[in-house]
């Protein structure tokens, strides 16, 4: 059962279907949302855009859930899907090694060159020790996403999932459609 949902695009943010007022557009809204809705996790500024989108979406989702205990738990999974994997981080890292005359590979850029880092960022922030995975599929496909999430409930540990679509092709093109889903009794 889906309990809460969040939608983020470069010009629209919705929590449980209700639009949030945002002043900027594009990637500036991520910083705007961080400052207005989070504010206590400076590691946000080190993240690539995909991780920022997933992180902010998860924060809005968990704020909507209410209680933020940050206690370690194994029963909540983080499972995301997208189309562009970590393309923006890959391109950024490539730019640090493109020129042989100016060849300075950035370790901080390199660590984000995998899409599943965003699930790790969310798990670290919230002390989740359950399943985390990130699947790359052709396009947003609700059937594929729901089937995979339902499968995740087959294990005896997972009772809830932060799941859905988190995609980013560059700093100005991104989308999150994520939700908090609980196992049906």
């Amino acid at each position: 059962m889906i309990k809460h949902q969040v939608y983020i695009s470069p010009n629209e943010v919705k929590v449980n279907g209700k639009s949030l007022t945002i002043n900027g557009c594009g990637s500036t809204i991520l910083t705007e949302l961080y400052r207005s809705q989070v504010g206590d996790y400076p590691k946000f500024f080190k993240m690539d855009t995909l991780s920022k989108v997933g992180f902010i979406a998860s924060e809005l989702l968990l704020n909507a859930e209410g209680y933020r205990g940050f206690e370690p738990r194994e029963d909540r999974a983080v499972i995301f899907f997208n189309r562009n994997a970590s393309l923006q981080a890959d391109t950024h890292y490539q730019s640090t090694i493109q020129n042989p005359e100016n060849y300075f590979p950035s370790p901080a850029a390199f660590v984000y060159t995998l899409p599943n880092i965003v699930t790790g960022e969310i798990a670290i922030r919230n002390k989740y020790f359950g399943e985390t995975s990130f699947m790359v599929i052709d396009d947003f496909d609700e059937k594929i996403i729901m089937k995979n999430l339902e499968n995740a409930f087959q294990d005896p540990i997972t009772k809830s999932i932060i799941g859905g679509w988190v995609d980013c092709s560059d700093e100005e093109h991104f989308e999150a459609r994520i939700f908090l889903m609980e196992k049906d009794n």
């Binding site: 300075f104 590979p105 950035s106 370790p107 901080a108 660590v111």
Partner: peptide
């Protein structure tokens, strides 16, 4: 530790 690596790159650059 990633910041430490970044500082090493920064010193070289």
């Amino acid at each position: 530790s990633i910041d430490a690596l970044e500082l090493i790159v920064m010193m070289e650059k």
